[in-house]
């Protein structure tokens, strides 16, 4: 009963959101139309203005002013983008089918096979973004967790490095991007290398790693004294102490940091892709922004929702992984992953 009630609440709020959005887009559309017409009237003539009004009212898509698109238009554009993605995928498949023999020959001769270089679809852009964030987060983890452990274990190391963390933590992604670009473009001068990708994932990683770094260091330095006493009595070596006691004990805090890292990485990624001219959702948004065609605004809105939804999915995924590896059984509602795990275990037992 409570679940139904909650679902009802959510649906209600979605509907009111759509209504407000629709009203706002109508109002803005009207304003944009009247602005356009008065402008033409001022600059040209009354006749030209009248003609424009007629053209706009006839619904000709190429003459519509750019304003906030309505929910319906965004929905339709999403469908168009999906169709386009299917088309591009088909083209790609056809291309590879056609090149199958040639590529096989090239491979035998030890040469690189020919790859499809056509226009990427919206779906391809999304996948590229996911790839970018994956490498970015991986970089963040591989720096933040070891350094965080060291900072948590050694007060001396923490004192010596803390200024660096404090200063670099609040730096904006834009500045990180510029810094990384300076370095990467100096090192990677080969025209074939994918500089945009490298710059993107490194900037994202460096920008997003701080939450994990700080949380790991706090987690490691605040491990329950009684666990450390156990490790002392058992005379565990440093490796065993870290991997059997300290790390498992600090996993809840590390994962809280990782969740923040992933959501920051996703937020930053779009901006960095935009700046670095890298393909991906950020690149898609930039292209549409610069394109400025009548459908651009709707496409940007579609990208916005996709970005938001993927952000939510990533966060839920991290939460599930956290639930799996953490020893604290605090969360009352079972995560999807834990349900899957329970199913697996019960099957095994049966």
């Amino acid at each position: 009963m409570k679940v139904l009630k909650n679902v009802g609440l959510i649906i209600g709020s979605i509907i009111s959101f759509l209504i407000i959005w629709n009203m706002a887009s109508n109002a803005l559309y009207k304003r944009a139309v009247s602005t356009t017409i008065t402008k033409i009237e001022k600059l040209q003539s009354k006749e030209a203005a009248e003609e424009t009004r007629k053209r706009i009212e006839s619904g000709d898509p190429s003459s519509q002013p750019n304003s906030l698109p309505s929910p319906l238009l965004v929905w339709k554009t999403a469908g168009l983008l999906l169709d386009d993605a299917h088309k591009v995928m088909k083209k790609k498949q056809d291309f590879y089918k056609k090149m199958e023999k040639t590529n096989a020959k090239l491979k035998q001769a030890g040469k690189e096979s020919i790859t499809y270089t056509g226009r990427p679809s919206f779906l391809d852009q999304t996948i590229t973004s996911l790839k970018n964030i994956f490498w970015g987060v991986l970089l963040a983890i591989s720096i933040a967790i070891p350094v965080g452990i060291l900072m948590g274990l050694s007060k001396r190391f923490k004192t010596s490095i803390n200024w660096f963390v404090q200063i670099f933590k609040p730096i904006s992604p834009v500045v990180w991007f510029l810094l990384v670009q300076m370095i990467v473009n100096t090192i990677m001068t080969d025209p074939d290398s994918d500089n945009a990708f490298v710059i993107t994932f490194i900037s994202v990683g460096l920008c997003a790693m701080w939450a994990t770094l700080v949380n790991t260091s706090v987690g490691v330095s605040s491990v329950d004294e009684s666990y450390l006493n156990v490790s002392k009595v058992l005379r565990l070596g440093i490796g065993k102490k870290i991997f059997k006691v300290v790390l498992p004990a600090s996993i809840p805090l590390i994962f809280t940091g990782l969740r923040i890292t992933v959501s920051v990485a996703w937020m930053v990624l779009i901006a960095v892709e935009w700046l670095s001219q890298s393909p991906g959702l950020g690149g898609f948004v930039r292209e549409e922004f610069q394109n400025g065609s009548s459908s651009s605004n709707a496409k940007i809105m579609v990208a916005m929702f996709v970005i938001g939804i993927i952000g939510v999915i990533l966060d839920k995924l991290m939460a599930s992984v956290q639930g799996l590896v953490s020893f604290e059984n605090k969360s009352q509602s079972p995560s999807p992953l834990s349900i899957m795990r329970n199913m697996f275990i019960s099957k095994k037992a049966a």
Binding site: S226, Y227, N229, V230, K232, V233, L234, R235, K244, V245, P248, A249, I251, F327
Partner: peptide
Amino acid sequence: GAGPDRAVVFQSPSLLPW
């Protein structure tokens, strides 16, 4: 220093919960 020749049963069980 501490060592396993002097095993301790602590007041709180101090098991590794994971």
